[in-house]
Amino acid sequence: RKWEEIAERLREEFNINPEEAREAVEKAGGNEEEARRIVKKRL
């Protein structure tokens, strides 16, 4: 699934746990840019 690939990239890029990465992607509706913004806000 594409969402899992996005979550994996976010996890590696921001050094967050898989659960946090998945939550961000879900919140963003699968949009990678939006997920990235969500993760950055949390850091």
Rank of each mutant, 00 (worst) to 15 (best):
L43N: 05
L10Y: 00
E34R: 10
E33G: 08
P18M: 14
R42F: 15
E5A: 07
E20A: 08
R42M: 15
R1Y: 09
I6Q: 03
K27C: 05
R36T: 04
K27M: 15
E8T: 10
E8R: 15
K41F: 06
F14I: 01
E33A: 13
K40S: 10
E4N: 09
E4Q: 14
A7W: 08
K27I: 14
A28K: 01
R37V: 08
K40H: 15
E34L: 12
E8D: 11
R11E: 07
A24G: 02
E32V: 08
A24M: 05
E23P: 01
L10V: 05
E33N: 10
E8P: 01
E4L: 10
R22A: 10
E8Q: 15
P18I: 14
E19Q: 13
L10E: 00
N17R: 12
A28D: 00
E4G: 09
P18Q: 13
N31L: 07
N15L: 08
E13P: 00
R22F: 12
A21T: 02
A21S: 06
A35C: 03
N17E: 12
G30L: 03
E13I: 07
E23A: 11
A24D: 03
I38G: 03
P18F: 13
V25M: 05
A35R: 00
K2L: 15
E33F: 13
G29E: 13
G29F: 14
A7F: 05
A7Q: 07
E23W: 15
K27G: 06
L10Q: 00
I16R: 01
E4V: 07
A24E: 02
E23I: 11
I6F: 03
R36Y: 04
N31W: 06
E13T: 05
K27S: 11
W3I: 05
K2T: 12
E34A: 09
G30H: 03
K40E: 15
E32C: 04
K40A: 14
E23V: 10
W3Q: 05
V39A: 05
I38R: 06
E4C: 07
E8S: 12
R36H: 04
K27A: 14
I38V: 07
K27P: 00
R1A: 13
R11F: 06
I6K: 03
R9F: 04
E5H: 06
R1Q: 13
G30Y: 05
E20Q: 08
E12N: 14
L10N: 00
F14C: 02
I16A: 03
W3F: 09
A24Y: 04
A7M: 13
K41L: 14
L10G: 00
V39Q: 02
V39E: 01
R1K: 13
R37I: 09
I6W: 02
E26G: 07
E13G: 03
E4R: 14
F14W: 04
A21M: 02
E8M: 15
I6E: 03
E32H: 11
A35I: 02
E5Y: 07
R9S: 08
K41P: 03
I38S: 06
R37P: 00
E19D: 14
R22I: 12
A7R: 04
V39L: 15
A21K: 00
A24L: 06
R9Y: 04
L10M: 05
V39G: 01
E19I: 10
R37S: 09
K27H: 10
L43Q: 08
E13S: 04
F14Q: 02
R42L: 15
V39K: 01
R1N: 12
A7L: 07
R42K: 14
R36D: 00
E32L: 10
I6S: 03
E32N: 03
N17V: 07
E23D: 14
K2H: 12
R36C: 04
R9D: 05
K2R: 14
I6M: 11
E19W: 14
E5R: 07
E4T: 09
R22G: 04
A35G: 02
R42P: 03
K41Y: 06
A7V: 12
E20P: 03
E34G: 06
E26F: 13
R42D: 08
F14K: 01
I6V: 08
R11L: 12
G30I: 02
R36A: 04
G30A: 03
G30V: 02
E20W: 15
L10H: 00
A28P: 00
E8I: 13
G30E: 02
A21D: 00
N15P: 07
R11C: 03
E13N: 03
A7N: 03
A35V: 02
K27W: 14
E13K: 04
K40W: 14
